[in-house]
Design a protein around this nucleic acid. Structure first.
Lengths: 140, 140
DNA sequence: ACAGATGTAATCATTCAGATTACTTAATGG
DNA sequence: CCATTAAGTAATCTGAATGATTACATCTGT
């Protein structure tokens, strides 16, 4: 949803876009979009103005926003969650398994983010425009 | 939880271990463990026998089980879920965003699995044993 | 001042993983 | 051979998380 919203903002090339409009593209409620935009604001990915005729826009070129930044701005919790109940500390395995796994999972998550970092919002936008051209050719 | 269970089986070095015992280490219900073991059986990671004196054990050496296999045996759904509501197909971005993202997310997930594949169950077991030694030194 | 937009709180709905109980099925030991 | 032990499995419950909805306060440009 975050990538979708940012892609729309990139598509609009700096024009201010309202949460209502974004919600229409994502097919959700404007309040959900506004909550998402708050996270993106904190990460300095978008700038939002209040009041009449206002809305949001990207704070940088799509070329300079990669998907790892987007991921981190939105996902506060870790991908690999700890279990709700603590393992049995009397068992030699249960005693230390969380400690061991947290290192491994942090590494796996970092690998994932490094892969996401290879793609920028400009790449996503380009894919959108290609798809748009194809649709235009099919039904001119 | 899957890694935890497999680590206990590795620690027990081929002895048959009951779901009740495993549940005691994980601190959960034996039924939960049995459901998990069904997935691990399908992936040929463990062998389970029914009846008195029965239980589960690894079907291979811990050296030859890596965490990507474990991940895939347990996680049937994709890490990056599609949104509950379909994006607005009338919007040029909404029309194609899922298609574009599915490729990117598949790549990110593959990167994560490749990182997990670098670690074997034997590595996890070694970490457990190191931790065990330290605990023994502290309180001999 | 007012219209249009965001910020934000409160509440509801849905989904999902795990928890629990209960019952059936199978294999082993005496 | 049968009593015991443990897995397979179904049904139901709970709690957490995410998104949906409604309502209202606040800000800002015309």
């Amino acid at each position: 949803m975050a990538v979708h919203v940012l892609a729309v903002l990139a598509y609009k090339e700096g024009d201010r876009v309202t949460s209502k409009f974004l919600a229409g593209s994502v097919n959700t409620n404007p309040v959900i979009v506004r909550r998402l935009l708050l996270s993106l604001q904190k990460a300095r990915l978008v700038e939002t103005c209040k009041g009449a005729g206002a809305g949001s826009r990207l704070s940088r070129s799509p070329r300079r926003i990669n998907l790892a930044e987007v991921y981190r701005s939105v996902e506060d919790t870790e991908s690999f969650a700890s279990p709700a109940r603590k393992p049995n500390a009397d068992c030699p395995v249960g005693h230390c398994i969380l400690e061991a796994l947290s290192r491994l999972f942090a590494s796996a998550q970092q690998a994932m983010e490094q892969d996401l970092a290879r793609t920028t919002l400009a790449d996503v936008l380009a894919a959108v425009k290609v798809s748009e051209e194809c649709a235009g050719k099919k039904a001119p």
